[in-house]
């Protein structure tokens, strides 16, 4: 993981539909909101957003392209772009 840490990824929140890549970092402090950074990080991890997982943006909502539907390895997960800021991805 230490190598991946050096790789500055792009926040998943900026991704458009169809982009795919590998998660290089999950960092709750990147997405300040109502949750404590550690808590947001744990929730994202529990839903499978973990370093090394493959992600692909499948769909997005009508207004502001929000929320987004993401394929995380074999699972589909919906989340808002505001929380997706915490997930950094090395896009292909």
């Amino acid at each position: 993981m230490s190598n991946a840490d050096l790789d500055a990824g792009t926040p998943l929140s900026l991704a458009s539909v169809g982009l795919s890549g590998v998660i290089v970092r999950v960092d709750g402090t990147r997405a300040p909101g109502m949750l404590e950074p550690e808590e947001l990080e744990r929730r994202l991890l529990e839903m499978g957003f973990v370093e090394g997982a493959r992600v692909r943006v499948l769909h997005q909502g009508l207004l502001g392209g929000d929320p987004i539907a993401v394929k995380v390895d074999d699972m589909r997960v919906a989340l808002r772009r505001s929380e997706a800021r915490a997930i950094e991805v090395n896009f292909d």
Partner: peptide
Amino acid sequence: RRHSEPFLMELPA
């Protein structure tokens, strides 16, 4: 004075 909880949900098959 709060925003709603993060929306984080599995889209099942």
